[in-house]
Design a protein around this nucleic acid. Structure first.
Length: 867
RNA sequence: GCCGAAAUGGCGGAAUUGGCAGACGCGCAUGGUUCAGGUCCAUGUACUCGCAAGGGUGUGGAGGUUCGAGUCCUCUUUUCGGCACCA
């Protein structure tokens, strides 16, 4: 690559900052060096001595168009990755493509382009965009596309492992069905009763045979682990806690009276201590017993059918919490095992079949819903918890009271509710009619999808059957049969049923056990399987023999910093935690959680709303880059708001950043000849400290400002990531240098100082504006790669102020600000504050009660309290 | 209903531990530079009274703690996000 040599510019010549010329030139240079951003090896004889830092941004879906949310997400990650590299870390900064999924099939239907072709073309397009922005990814070493067999074969491999471990299983179940996707959705993909991809589409319920992953096996660990993850936002942890929904309680069996052959009704309750207040049993309309009873009771059958329809409709519109409670008495009776009381059994529309046991004991005195229901149907209300014996004057249902104990509860009367819960659950267990139980809202992860563009599930159905497998039974393929390749030539339709089912040569195969005819599973895997473990693959992306090498993964994991949108708080972030625990138990990795720290960035909005095609407020990154340059675009994305907040895109702001970069460019080019001459005279060695000796006042002030800026930015990078204030600090520094321009031109600032200023300024720009930084580094006469330079270190001595400004308050209100020597002691400060004219004017005719001098590291302050 | 986050100029935002509220940028205004400008430079810009010097008010609202509160406490309003007959 040809180096660009420029002659010394005349001081008054106008040099224009032209990112359209600078950026493509550097991009071409960088693209020609595939190893540029590769991490050093972490195994073998040449293994890196540096501490590791795994910086990861969530991998994008290759829609073909990078949007501003991506630009921002990756600008945050890239700033961090570049900073950590300069701080001496061995940085893994990978990128890949979440490349399976429905849009490719929709595009195929629309344009008659095969999904694979469409996807790969989109990847190419987006990669061009990402390279244009100058993100420091190790493309050559890490890039993956989940739709390629080199990747998805490991999905299949993990699936087989899970089948072996009993973690993947097949069962018939009620599932969410999106008619527009023509496929099943996981619970996590249903948002407010609607499809996560089609926000207007109500999700239907269908009964289907599906593959499930037993995520519930890890429910407790997933929940408890949240308490050990301080590096994750509280918001995400709370959302996951709610999603898992652990609820401690008890199962209690109520026998159905006079029906010895009918199984007992098991209810789930979190308040077994209130069981003496139960006045009815309520069953979900779809409870197994109800299904029996409606066979012989037409009136009941009709009422139940209505309720089922109602629940279905309400669930689909997301109004399940608002439907009016009603129910129907079955005429049956159940016996409370604690006191032998006979309770009527009802069917009620507010009981959910898929939570708990689908049956409850109704305690109207202590539960709002039960109370509402009991009032409507005239069922008894019986108080069993009270602080003061029995006072019926309180508002119903009775709430929690300080010091409440059980009343009218047999041998448990007088116990506190918490202790009673323990004792009564134990009693039930000892007498064989119940036990302490934990229930979860989390359900097993349904991973079957009736779509084409996904990972084939590596299972077959043996048609004839063989020993241990009945005809049509399911058989796992051996590892040697992997990958099960997705056929390329296929007709895509949305008529329901898996498109793969129509590909005869795919479907028809032989049973790996008996060699007889077999049919392949034609459903594909949920694409969230792909993204559940991709970050492990990054550590060893070219491995053809295993999903990854454990030694490498163990070196890099956990991810030091994971960055992405909060919209994945439940979906991806819970699935990938689950996957981590599974492969830990398989012995592949040592860590139990994937990421040490998680950062959720805010959305990019425009005119107060999320950018979307339908709202017509989308700002194209390409257009921004064309007008203002990649540096200005990404830097604006970091400057306009702190990264965790929503960011309002204002084009004028991008123009402002562009102006700032132009100011830096002009400043550097103006003094670059001075710096280059100095370099030559010192043969490019480090500038010796003695060259700073005998600083002029102007030079010392500039160095002070410089080192204060270094300290500020370095600190911000280590914790809060308020890049907006980092960038503001650089702007302030540049403004100060410009303010000293006349002094510099007169020769009042040493050449070595100017060199130090400009070189350090350039280094500090690397995380935010890498193209400009590279250009300026070269202009300053440097030949090395600017982004591999060590990050500047703040010198506290140089940063120290020798004069300070001390605000003087009178009764807490600012009277004046006085200037004092930095080492002025309390006596001197007091004297100076009293000597000030403006302060004296405020004190006239008053008595001083207190004279406070506050001295903190952040500064000093005087407050005079007067009467 | 429950949980979480937030509210500061015309706008985005700053004030990290209670200590000069409004950094930095945008916008706007005035002046200058330029053949020209999505150029550049300078100055000003919270509100309010005042010609001015100078004063008063001010961080959604109401109280409180403190020498001192945008920051802490209590209550409250609004906005956004999540969960929601979860027994």
């Amino acid at each position: 690559m040809q180096e660009i040599e420029k002659n010394d510019v005349q001081a008054n010549e106008v040099v224009r900052y032209n990112p359209a010329e600078i950026e493509p030139r550097w991009q071409a240079k960088w693209d020609a060096q595939p190893e540029l951003y590769a991490a050093e090896p972490v195994t073998g004889p040449h293994k890196s001595e540096k501490p590791k830092f795994y910086c990861l941004e969530m991998l994008p879906y290759p829609s073909g168009q990078l949007h501003m949310g991506h630009v921002r997400n990756y600008a945050i990650g890239d700033a961090l990755a570049r900073f950590m590299r300069m701080r001496g870390y061995n940085v893994l900064h990978p990128m890949g493509w979440d490349a399976f999924g429905l849009p490719a099939e929709n595009a195929a239907l629309k344009n008659n382009t095969p999904p694979r072709e469409w996807t790969l073309k989109n990847i190419e397009q987006m990669k061009v965009q990402m390279r244009r922005i100058g993100y420091s990814y190790d493309w050559a070493g890490t890039e993956i596309a989940t739709c390629l067999p080199e990747y998805y074969r490991w999905n299949q491999w993990f699936f087989l492992k899970m089948v072996e471990q009993g973690l993947a299983y097949r069962r018939s179940s009620k599932v969410n069905w999106c008619p527009l996707c023509a496929t099943v959705l996981a619970n996590e993909q249903v948002v407010g009763g609607c499809c996560w991809r089609h926000e207007e589409q109500i999700v239907e319920q269908r009964e289907l045979e599906q593959w499930f992953l037993r995520i519930t096996k890890y429910a407790d660990e997933l929940l408890d682990g949240l308490d050990t993850m301080p590096g994750w936002p509280e918001k995400v942890r709370t959302m996951q806690r709610n999603w898992i929904g652990r609820s401690e309680g008890a199962h209690v069996d109520f026998r159905v009276s006079a029906m010895a052959d009918t199984p007992a009704i098991t209810v789930f309750t979190t308040r077994v201590d209130t069981i003496f207040g139960a006045t009815s049993i309520q069953l979900a309309p779809e409870h197994a017993l109800v299904k029996e009873w409606v066979k012989t009771d037409a009136r009941l059958a009709e009422a139940v059918a209505t309720m089922v329809a109602e629940q279905k409709a309400a669930r689909e519109t997301g109004d399940i919490g608002n439907i009016e409670k009603h129910g129907v008495a079955t005429g049956m009776k159940a016996i409370n095992p604690f006191n032998g009381e006979t309770l009527p059994i009802w069917v009620a529309n507010y009981i959910l079949a898929d939570y708990g046991t689908g049956a409850i004991m109704s305690v109207p005195a202590h539960d709002e819903r039960d109370f509402e229901f009991a009032t409507k149907y005239g069922l008894a209300v019986k108080r069993v918890v009270s602080a003061r014996g029995k006072e019926e004057s309180d508002a119903l249902p009775y709430g929690e009271e300080e010091g409440a104990v059980l009343v009218d509860s047999g041998e448990w009367t007088g116990e506190t509710p918490l202790i009673a819960q323990e004792k009564m659950a134990r009693y039930a267990e000892e007498h064989g009619f119940g036990k302490k139980t934990t229930t979860y809202r989390l359900k097993d992860w349904g991973v079957s999808r009736q779509r084409y563009w996904g990972t084939p599930i590596p299972m077959v159905y043996c048609e004839r059957g063989h020993e241990g497998v009945k005809a049509g039974g399911v058989v796992a393929l051996p590892e040697s049969a992997l990958p099960v390749l997705l056929p390329e030539q296929i007709e895509i339709t949305q008529e329901g049923g898996s498109p793969l089912g129509k590909v005869a040569e795919f479907v028809h195969t032989t049973c790996p056990v008996c060699g007889g005819p077999a049919r392949r599973e034609t459903d594909t895997m949920d694409t969230f399987v792909d993204s559940s473990w991709y970050f492990y693959r990054y550590t060893d992306a070219r491995n053809a023999a295993a999903p990854f090498d454990s030694e490498k993964a163990n070196h890099w994991f956990p991810i030091d910093q994971y960055i992405g949108g909060v919209e994945h708080a439940i979906l991806h972030l819970i699935y990938s935690r689950f996957w981590t625990k599974v492969i830990r138990d398989l012995g592949l990795i040592a860590n139990s959680e994937p990421a040490e720290r998680l950062f959720t960035q805010g959305m990019v909005i425009k005119d107060g709303a999320k950018m979307s095609k339908s709202k017509g407020n989308v700002v194209s990154p390409d257009l921004m880059i064309e007008k203002y340059g990649a540096d200005a675009t990404r830097m604006y994305a970091l400057f306009a708001a702190p990264p965790d907040r929503d960011l309002e895109w204002q084009e004028e702001g991008v123009a402002g950043i562009s102006r700032f970069l132009a100011r830096v460019y002009r400043l550097t080019l103006k003094y670059a000849p001075v710096v280059r001459r100095l370099e030559q005279s010192t043969h490019g060695d480090e500038i010796a400290p003695e060259q700073f000796a005998g600083q002029t006042v102007e030079g010392a002030a500039l160095l002070r400002a410089l080192h204060q800026t270094i300290a500020k930015i370095t600190e911000d990078f280590s914790g809060r990531w308020h890049f907006n204030t980092c960038i503001a600090a650089i702007m302030i520094l540049v403004n100060e240098i410009y303010a000293a321009e006349a002094a510099m031109d007169k020769g009042d600032v040493a050449a070595a100082t100017i060199a130090e200023l400009l070189r350090t300024l350039t280094l500090m720009l690397v995380p935010f504006a890498p193209f400009l930084a590279a250009e300026l580094w070269q202009e300053l006469g440097e030949r090395s790669d600017v982004f591999m330079q060590p990050w500047p270190v703040a010198d506290a001595e140089l940063a120290r102020e020798n004069e300070i400004e001390v605000p003087v308050q009178v009764n807490g209100k600012l009277a004046n600000v006085i200037k004092l020597a930095a080492d002025a002691d309390e006596v001197a400060i007091k004297a100076a504050s009293l000597a000030d004219e403006k302060v004296a004017a405020r004190l006239a005719g008053k008595t001083i009660v207190k004279h406070l001098v506050i001295d903190k590291s952040s500064g000093k302050l005087v407050n005079l309290v007067v009467k």
